[in-house]
Amino acid sequence: ESATAFACLVSDMWLGEFDYVSPEAFHSVFGKRYPTFSRRTQHDAQEFLICVLDDLHEAFKEVRAQLCQERQSPGAGASTRSSRGTSIITQLFEGQLSHGIRCLACKSHSEKPESFTVLSLPIPSTRVCSLQDCLECFFQPDTLTLSNQIHCYWCGGNQDATVKASITKAPPIIIFHLKRFAWQDKNRRKLSTTVCYPFSDLDLSPYISASCRNTREYSLCAVVNHAGDMDYGHYTAFCKHSVTKHWYSFDDAQVTKIPDSEVQADTAYLLFY
């Protein structure tokens, strides 16, 4: 039901018959399935996005499984089964990380895979940094000690270890979440750091595994902004028209064309490439 409501919303947007389109119908249907998002209170855009993508994935996966079952022939069983876990959502947004773990005692190495639809990046500065700085911070090696030790199969117990992540599958559309909400002295606060992000030629090759042949460069296509603090705020979005290449600002019922210079914002929270 929510997938149908979302399809109607997107269809209305692309028809171009209105100055703006209200998502109220979709919000109403989605709120019934997920009551957390039905209340008129501030919610985290990243959490909402992941929930929407997961819900659409499950809906599309069911439809695909039904179609595959209807078309199934005696010789197509294996390929049919292997396709049931995918959808247009996973094809567009899902990537794969591999966490390389090395035991510091016996030097054994293992790999732990992890799927992602959104990469949550730490912000390493309180004033100004770049998206590349955030990526380098995310992908830098980490040492696990004390209560964070890993259980080493070869040693038969917990050991200190190093962990380094790399991308083994880069999705066609990659979403970055800038972690602006951080803990400080047992209190959460919002980081107002200016994060400079490129409009084109985002190169992820330094973070991609040698086994991954995907060397595409990414261009910015949308930004979700959050203005406010921990307890209240306002979300807006900048979106690039895929045909005209013009940028537009979406602020409730106000949809305005904006110059490229306004797309770089201190309030950026989610980046879509």
Results as ranks from 00 to 15, higher is better:
residue 240 K to F: 05
residue 237 A to M: 08
residue 242 S to P: 09
residue 210 A to T: 13
residue 193 T to Q: 06
residue 228 G to P: 04
residue 243 V to M: 14
residue 220 L to P: 00
residue 226 H to P: 01
residue 217 E to H: 15
residue 236 T to C: 02
residue 249 S to A: 14
residue 240 K to W: 02
residue 248 Y to F: 11
residue 200 S to F: 12
residue 223 V to D: 00
residue 250 F to W: 05
residue 232 Y to L: 14
residue 203 D to Q: 05
residue 242 S to R: 11
residue 251 D to T: 00
residue 246 H to Y: 12
residue 197 Y to A: 09
residue 223 V to I: 05
residue 236 T to Q: 10
residue 198 P to G: 03
residue 193 T to F: 10
residue 229 D to T: 12
residue 222 A to V: 06
residue 234 H to E: 05
residue 240 K to N: 03
residue 248 Y to S: 01
residue 197 Y to G: 07
residue 230 M to G: 00
residue 212 C to A: 04
residue 246 H to W: 03
residue 248 Y to M: 00
residue 221 C to P: 08
residue 251 D to W: 00
residue 246 H to K: 14
residue 201 D to S: 10
residue 226 H to K: 07
residue 192 S to I: 09
residue 206 P to F: 08
residue 204 L to W: 04
residue 210 A to F: 11
residue 242 S to Q: 13
residue 192 S to F: 11
residue 246 H to P: 04
residue 204 L to Y: 04
residue 236 T to P: 00
residue 219 S to D: 02
residue 221 C to F: 11
residue 249 S to K: 15
residue 200 S to Q: 14
residue 244 T to N: 10
residue 229 D to W: 09
residue 207 Y to F: 12
residue 242 S to G: 06
residue 253 A to Y: 14
residue 229 D to I: 11
residue 243 V to E: 15
residue 224 V to Q: 11
residue 208 I to H: 09
residue 225 N to R: 12
residue 253 A to V: 15
residue 232 Y to V: 15
residue 205 S to G: 08
residue 243 V to Y: 12
residue 195 V to W: 07
residue 231 D to V: 12
residue 226 H to N: 09
residue 240 K to I: 06
residue 195 V to I: 05
residue 205 S to V: 10
residue 202 L to V: 00
residue 250 F to K: 03
residue 194 T to P: 00
residue 215 T to Q: 15
residue 234 H to P: 07
residue 241 H to C: 13
residue 228 G to N: 07
residue 218 Y to K: 05
residue 243 V to F: 12
residue 249 S to R: 14
residue 192 S to H: 12
residue 227 A to M: 13
residue 207 Y to L: 03
residue 206 P to N: 03
residue 203 D to I: 05
residue 250 F to T: 02
residue 200 S to G: 00
residue 212 C to F: 09
residue 216 R to L: 01
residue 221 C to Q: 14
residue 205 S to H: 01
residue 213 R to Y: 09
